[in-house]
């Protein structure tokens, strides 16, 4: 399994545990951080759907989809730089949202909302980058 795929997959494992840990904490009553925890609900869903499921899919697809032929692209799995951009953009966006959204919801401060909006844009950049990275590999395999 190539290094970039391993990073996608291991990151997805971390989000899987983190999201379910949050869910378990939410189920506990009377915690001092109760209001903060409740405010993380939307972020928690995104940790699961984007951080765990989508990132795992991205990693496995990056690993297993038919590779480019040498004459199509000297890099058999596509641009490493683009793959790194996808990983960084997606994960920075996810973590930024998780860190700031509860406070944005609790306080309503415009600068916090702006950063949460930026987190969404970063995730779209990562996802669009993944689409570009993998599109040409959705093909039949020439033997």
């Amino acid at each position: 399994m190539p290094r970039l795929a391993r990073i996608f997959v291991k990151a997805s494992f971390v989000y899987f545990v983190a999201a379910l840990l949050l869910a378990a904490l939410m189920a506990l009553d009377g915690l001092a951080a109760g209001q903060w925890l409740r405010s993380t609900y939307l972020s928690q869903v995104h940790l699961l759907v984007v951080g765990w499921i989508s990132q795992l899919i991205a990693g496995i697809a990056y690993w297993m989809f038919p590779r480019f032929l040498k004459e199509q692209n000297p890099q058999p799995r596509g641009s490493d730089r683009l793959a790194w951009l996808v990983i960084l953009s997606l994960n920075v966006g996810l973590l930024l949202r998780f860190a700031l959204e509860p406070f944005a919801l609790m306080t309503g401060r415009p600068w916090l909302k702006a950063l949460v909006a930026l987190s969404g844009v970063l995730q779209v950049v990562g996802i669009a980058g993944f689409g570009v990275l993998i599109w040409g590999r959705v093909r039949t395999m020439e033997i």
């Binding site: 415009p110 702006a114 949460v116 909006a117 969404g120 844009v121 995730q123 779209v124």
Partner: peptide
Amino acid sequence: FVYFVLGSALGALLLVNRW
């Protein structure tokens, strides 16, 4: 993949709209 990009773009738009 098309739905993924469109869906996430909509999500980002919703976050921007909140700001």
